[in-house]
């Protein structure tokens, strides 16, 4: 039985609904030894700013129960270096390469977006939600007015697909989702990491060099599902579900709640071929249950009896 796994993100077609998430997949090419990148629905590159950025002090990672905290602080090579060194090969791939961007000001977001679009980038994921940058970053994503402003300014500046990555660290994600949609977003990726911290009881020092970090991994899956559910109910643009996907069944839950596609994040660290294994698991799930198209289960969660 041939399963139709193709999905459409508001004019951006994907061969299948599994992408690799930003910050867990490098610039993509690092994974060539472990999987055929062209078999992915797509992948999202590490967040780029206008200029190279060195990130936060170490330690930058700490494992927690069924999860991990990170405080990388968006270390990246900068948009121009990316265009020079990574983009020529990325452009030849037969998969959707989404380039993640961030900035300290609205103007920086716009300039990074324009620079990348001019180089031929077809889809941008806009990080308005990183918890590890003090200026800008998450502040934009916490405020519906700022969210609307940044999305609408980008919308005016570029014509490529705009995927807005939302923060769970807000009191009402539906409001932010709506603001992004009204600003001109093509799709929303939900969610970024949750604020978190850990303290070493012997040294009494925080486990992360910059004290606070972002929590990811299986620990956050229920939170992410809830946030996707709330976003789906609030907007009509496609939602890409992210948060703790380690198994095919985790992804299926996101589809049932209404996500059009999913991004696999932390699992890439543990299993570099994990995205494709999850994709195969989704296919198997559909075959076993005679589901002809993945789109047949999107948003098909039943009400409790």
């Amino acid at each position: 039985m041939d399963i139709d796994l193709a999905v459409d993100l508001n004019g951006l077609p994907l061969d299948n609904p599994v992408l690799a998430a930003s910050g867990t997949f490098g610039y993509g090419l690092e994974f060539k030894p472990y999987l055929d990148l062209n078999k992915l629905g797509g992948f999202v590159t590490k967040g780029l700013s206008l200029h190279a950025h060195e990130g936060n002090p170490t330690p930058r990672i700490f494992e927690t129960a069924s999860g991990m905290l990170n405080s990388i602080g968006l270390q990246n090579i900068g948009a121009e270096c990316f265009i020079r060194e990574q983009w020529p090969e990325l452009q030849t791939l037969n998969t959707v390469v989404v380039v993640n961007i961030w900035g300290r000001t609205v103007e920086e977001y716009v300039r990074v977006g324009q620079t990348l679009e001019a180089a031929g980038v077809k889809a941008l994921e806009v990080n308005i939600s990183c918890p590890n940058i003090k200026e800008g970053g998450v502040q934009f994503g916490k405020d519906p007015v700022m969210t609307h402003r940044i999305v609408s300014e980008l919308r005016k500046a570029v014509s490529c697909h705009l995927m807005i990555k939302l923060s769970p660290n807000v009191s009402d994600i539906a409001l932010i989702a709506k603001a992004a949609e009204e600003g001109g977003a093509d799709s929303l990726s939900v969610i970024n990491t949750l604020h978190g911290m850990a303290v070493n009881v012997e040294t009494r020092q925080p486990e992360l060099g910059s004290i606070y970090g972002g929590l990811s991994g299986p620990a956050i899956l229920p939170v992410a599902l809830y946030m996707v559910d709330q976003s789906v109910r609030s907007v009509s643009i496609p939602i890409i579900g992210i948060g703790g996907i380690f198994r095919p069944e985790d992804a299926i839950q996101f589809f049932l709640v209404g996500a059009t596609a999913v991004q696999v994040g932390t699992y890439n660290f543990i299993n570099p071929a994990g995205t494709l294994e999850i994709l195969e698991g989704i296919r198997k799930f559909c075959i076993e249950r005679k589901i002809a198209s993945i789109r047949d289960i999107t948003g098909k969660m039943e009400q409790p009896r």
């Binding site: 990130g55 170490t58 330690p59 990672i61 990388i72």
Partner: peptide, 27 residues
């Protein structure tokens, strides 16, 4: 040695400042 997330060069957890030729430090 450092705490590592991936070992593949992508998570950027295990960086260390290394002296660059001009004397500046780079991760």
């Amino acid at each position: 040695e450092a705490r590592m997330g991936c070992g593949l060069g992508v998570c950027l957890s295990c960086v260390v400042p290394v002296k660059h030729e001009e004397g500046s430090l780079r991760n």
